[in-house]
Amino acid sequence: MLLAKNLTKSYKELTALSDVNLSIEKGELYGMLGPNGAGKTTTISILSSLLKPDNGEIFYEGKNLYQNLAECKKLIGVVPQEIALYDDLSATENLKFWGTLYGIKGKNLQKKSDELLEFLGLADRKNHKIKTYSGGMKRRINIAAALLHDPKIVFMDEPTVGIDPQSRNLIFEVIEELHSRGLTMIYTTHYMEEAERLCDRIGIIDEGKIIAEGSLDELKTNSSIKEEIHLKYSNPNKNKLDQLTDRYKGQLLLNEDHLILSSSQANAELPELIQLCSKSELLLDKVDIRSLSLESIFLELTGKSLRD
């Protein structure tokens, strides 16, 4: 469906993408997981012809994007990271406008937009101005505008940013439904839970490079770490944590009230960890050992946390 070879893009000094290769199968839901500034949006922009890469080639169904621009554009639907809609127009008016740009007309356009609004649970508010919508509703209509012309592949750039868990679940359901209908999608996010829940295959991207790729299971199998130790604690003394961080460089995620240690052998490492914790004057509330998450894999690969 989509083949991208050696995509490279720099903004002056900064290399936003270097040598990115993607191969997306028909019907696949591909997740692109990476922290802010990793190059997710840049990748989407290049794939959707908005940005020209400095280097590299892109093919949709075997056709070169730049040599078949008009044709390829119709195959692509993009849900931008921002709510790219006219907020002084209603949902219907927005959809009709964007549909018309793709050459959909009259009755067909009306039917399509009604169907989509129904599908996304926006039918009862379809004639209200977008600016009166809640964040979650705006996100959904933002998705609808990308689906109107029946694209063959849809790019969703962090479509759940800044909304409540309930709206997020609604969007997950929509995406899962689209996936089950066989739509090819690339989904970018910096939430590992989203990638874990939704995606068939995940590419982990950092500093413009895809540093690991595969299904969740493949990523886990290929990783040298097998488990995570989760430690909940109270009243940490920030000045006394040096011992811990020194000992577990690149393995440890420290938060306000808990830490996560990636480990290849949790049982063996636990006693030493607990000892160090008491030396650091941490009052432990709860300890458990969990199976590996993408968060730890990312930590292992980059030495950084996904969220900052």
Binding site: K74, A84, L85, L101, G103
Partner: peptide
């Protein structure tokens, strides 16, 4: 600024 411009450029216009 709203990003609709990007969307216009993505569309076949």
């Amino acid at each position: 600024e709203d990003g609709t411009f990007r969307r216009l450029l993505i569309a076949p216009v």
